[in-house]
Design a protein around this nucleic acid. Structure first.
Lengths: 162, 162
DNA sequence: TCAAATCCTTACTTTTATGTCAAGATTGTT
DNA sequence: AACAATCTTGACATAAAAGTAAGGATTTGA
């Protein structure tokens, strides 16, 4: 289970825009430099984010990108879903082995785990906004663990011996 | 954020072995057929799982694979870590763009999110064993949501207006 | 109206992940 | 001892993801 390059860099570009003051914007070369990626790659990512309505693009001289909504109103689960093309809904069609459809179609013991995992991740991400990612690493960490805290208080399951 | 093919199929093969009675085993052709994957692919997966100590392989006629430990003692977080090659520890080296090292080295606002996400996932997976995946979809679903239940009781954060 | 700066779009190349193949090694059976 | 069934291993082929390139479109300003 891992984050794709598109998710990683796309999110990072958004965070750059979130640091801007009202009315400011960044051009592709600026974004590319600040994230250490190529201008071409930044262009592709911003195109995606623009299509999805997260950023606003202005063409021509004096153009550039800025957030289309307030950073505090953009939740990470929405961002990830766009950058990842909603992978969950295609899961069972993606892992069919050499056959046309998954052998476990109908009744599948691991599907609940996959779905549940995505729920958990989505739930966590839905509680974080871009605005919360602009601080220093330690402050973001503190914010996140405040949210995450509840996950550490799980009572040990009585290991349902099957 | 998604599950890789190796994670998906590897886990499924393990679940097949978990359904066996004591002393029984499955050959590669049998595993391949039951999961709808090629024998070659099953072979590679089982080789990985064997190296990692989850399964026991017996060669020659009458050979086959069986679990090396009890299904109730094999937790999904261990399995996923092996099938995924512990991707978290390499995260910051994997997303360096066109540079040699990540521009956010030192202080990074999204690293806590990445790390935290992995903690959450690992935490959930560590509470599930192979034994819990052998039932019907509905029974597995019930088990999982019992575990997951706590994640739904999160109090709304007071959206730290930055 | 022209030129410069910028974003937009599609096609292409490279890299990485996935899956396959074939030859080798081991064990059980006759 | 020979053979058949099985796992093991490393090299190879294919497919998917990631990244690049290049020409087009839009805007500003002289």
């Amino acid at each position: 289970m891992k984050i794709s390059a598109q998710e990683e860099y796309g999110l990072r570009c958004l965070v750059q825009l979130a640091t801007l003051a009202d009315g400011e914007s960044l051009t592709l070369p600026q974004i590319a430099e600040r994230e250490g990626i190529s201008q071409a790659n930044a262009g592709k990512l911003m195109w995606l984010l623009n299509k999805a309505g997260f950023v606003q693009a202005i063409r021509g001289t004096k153009g550039g990108y800025s957030l289309a909504r307030e950073a505090g109103e953009i939740h990470l689960n929405e961002v990830i879903k766009v950058l990842d093309e909603d992978v969950l809904s295609k899961h069972c069609e993606s892992y069919t082995g050499v056959l046309d459809s998954c052998v476990h179609k109908g009744d599948c013991g691991i599907r609940p785990v996959i779905v549940g995992l995505h729920e958990i991740v989505e739930n966590a991400l839905s509680q974080i906004t871009l605005a919360q990612l602009v601080g220093s690493e330690s402050s973001v960490d503190a914010t996140f663990h405040q949210i995450q805290g509840i996950h550490r208080t799980i009572e040990p399951q009585s290991a349902g011996s099957n």
